[in-house]
Nucleic acid binder design. Structure first.
Lengths: 177, 177
DNA sequence: CGGAACATGTAAAGTGTTACATGATTCA
DNA sequence: TGAATCATGTAACACTTTACATGTTCCG
């Protein structure tokens, strides 16, 4: 879906509590955020520039090592306002869900098609791996109750992802056996 | 994600069992297919044209009423081959999941933020409505066992969507109360 | 000292949405 | 006869990915 530039709010949200470089943000997309939003560095860097120009974020140059100039961004008052407006706005759209596996499944009409178990098995393997990774992340991030309370939303979405994967695997197994 | 033109396979898949016009296909996206893939008519018509040029589908002109020319497409042998190659190919990518609600949730750090129950309630309502629609569709399409066996993949994905919504609602309720 | 990771950008091509455009048919 | 739906298309814009491009730092 071509959104109303949701990426900008992701960047603002990530900068809400800490200063980050474009590279740090790119890393965030590869981990937690990647669970429900994706973006490459080729989108991130230009968007940070735009947000900077619109004064929603500001930056300071940090020298790493001998001469490497890191641009470390932080949110401005204006940016914080913009973020909050988005946060309190309704979210009437259901998630965008494009699922190539379900698409293929849809086109298998025969209950006894020999490809069905192969397809299911592949997905079971994929989702088991994913579940393991998610659980590992939860254990590292939220082993103690305190982190959970200070990053409640993060805990919630990770918890959701884990339950989703568990249910998905159960469903796949149910139709596989 | 910029896919490797998955849309073409959706069109081929839909044309596998019956001849359809671009408009028919557009309608299919608004119903069943829309659950796991989306496309507008502005993508569909040009893609049908391309598939026709590549001889993966063919068309016949049908006059509706007095002079309305409908283009009714059907799959060719070549198209069927292409579809089958796609169907048996691995599906190593997990689904694309962009979820604005989870994104917002992620940025709510305080467990007692007053916005949390409002956000959850909105989602509960949305997903309950969706669940109702899905169940209605299942009841209409698969009330009898026969349809289920002749359109097994379709039944599977609808069943999955229903279970997914039920679990989602349970999860939302669990954190709402 | 070499490879992996850090760090930042732009360009080109592909995908997707919204808007523009037009006309026919059906049904009340 | 007018409104909703059927029916087909293009244009402009927005978003996303992949490729191109370059240089630094860290660590073994």
């Amino acid at each position: 879906m071509a959104q109303k530039n949701i990426l900008q709010y992701v960047l603002l949200g990530l900068l809400k509590n800490e200063s980050l470089s474009g590279y740090d943000i790119k890393k965030a997309f590869e981990k937690d955020i990647g669970e429900f939003w994706q973006a490459n560095h080729s989108q991130i860097y230009p968007q940070l520039k735009k947000l900077n120009e619109r004064a929603l974020i500001d930056k300071k140059i940090v020298i790493a090592g001998e001469k490497l100039e890191k641009k470390v961004y932080f949110i401005t008052h204006k940016g914080l306002q913009s973020l909050n407006e988005w946060l309190i706005s309704p979210t009437p759209e259901l998630s965008i869900n494009k699922n190539e596996f379900h698409l293929k499944l849809y086109f298998v009409s025969d209950k006894d098609d020999s490809i069905l178990p192969i397809m299911l098995q592949e997905q079971i393997h994929l989702h088991k791996t994913k579940l393991m990774n998610l659980k590992e992340r939860r254990d590292i991030l939220f082993e103690n109750q305190k982190n959970r309370e200070n990053n409640y939303g993060h805990y919630l979405v990770l918890d959701y992802a884990i339950q989703r994967e568990e249910h998905h695997i159960a469903w796949l197994n149910h139709h596989y056996h």
